[in-house]
């Protein structure tokens, strides 16, 4: 950080001194052994942590279907997010999502481990906020702020030409006939790619169950389904239903991937993917 100060201004001088003291304290405070037990904090931490600072990520971070940084995660030991196996890593900071099992978090806090929670990011502003929060938590505030600023600039660049194409209507359709509305991360990815979401036409801003026949009657121009997991499930059977294949004959079909899962700068790749 470079700051030019005129000698004659005591206020600014005091401010700079305070900042330096604070920064020094932050450096001393910066956690040395950080463990992440949530897929999304895994990725934010891998982006921002200093070498050697992050000692473990969750096992999901290596799963190509949900993690956009699976290759990088191969370089970290993985944990299963159980209080016992996390505690044995002797962390001074544990990163969790807001849906992490409350019992695990309570147990770690009782054992005196600092736990930092990251809420789910559902829009682009929140993604930038999470980057800054992660920077602060890791004692690398400048890096977090820089990543957030870069992401905000990229989003602004993408959105400037998104408006014109909103005429095309897309349907998001997942296992169990679930759909995401405009107020979700997937909804914002659609909008940024210039697609209108049929869930909002049907009055479901947060998403919910969309009956197969309601979907067919809505007649979307694009059908975006989820990638299938290994093994069989009846929940995903619906994605193989003959009627979806028939709908896809007259609509563009694409699938979501790991870039859609977490609120990280990887959503930019999801948007790029949709535009093509």
């Amino acid at each position: 950080m470079s700051v030019f100060v005129r000698r004659s201004d005591p206020h600014i001088l005091a401010a700079v001194a305070a900042l330096l003291i604070w920064a020094g304290a932050a450096m001393a405070d910066a956690p040395k052994r950080v463990v992440s037990i949530n897929l999304c904090t895994d990725q934010l931490a891998m982006m921002l942590a200093a070498p050697g600072q992050l000692v473990s990520v969750s096992y999901l971070a290596r799963d190509r279907r949900s993690s956009a940084m699976a290759d990088l995660a191969e370089g970290y030991p993985v944990n299963r997010g159980l209080a016992e196996d996390v505690f044995l890593l002797k962390p001074d900071l544990v990163l969790t999502g807001d849906h992490t099992t409350p019992a695990t978090v309570a147990m770690l806090e009782r054992l005196g481990v600092r736990v930092e929670r990251f809420s789910l990011a559902t829009d682009f502003d929140q993604i930038a906020d999470r980057l800054r929060q992660m920077g602060r938590a890791l004692g690398r505030e400048a890096m977090g702020a820089a990543a957030a600023a870069r992401f905000e600039a990229d989003v602004a660049g993408l959105q400037s030409d998104a408006g014109q194409r909103m005429a095309r209507r897309a349907a998001l359709y997942y296992a169990n006939g679930y759909t995401s509305g405009d107020d979700t991360l997937a909804g914002h990815i659609l909008a940024a790619a210039g697609l209108a979401n049929i869930a909002s036409e049907l009055g479901m801003p947060a998403g919910g169950s969309l009956a197969l026949e309601t979907l067919v009657m809505a007649g979307p121009d694009a059908l975006i389904t989820a990638e299938r997991f290994e093994g069989h499930s009846r929940s995903e059977d619906i994605l193989n239903h003959g009627v979806l294949r028939r709908v896809a004959e007259s609509a563009a079909r694409s699938t979501t991937n790991a870039n859609w899962v977490c609120g990280t700068p990887h959503v930019l790749s999801a948007i790029e993917g949709l535009r093509e």
Binding site: G231, S233, S235
Partner: peptide, 13 residues
């Protein structure tokens, strides 16, 4: 035991 995350919830079905 299924690797599929949805499978467990289908016991009910």
């Amino acid at each position: 035991l299924s690797p599929n995350p949805f499978a467990t919830s289908e016991i009910v079905f």
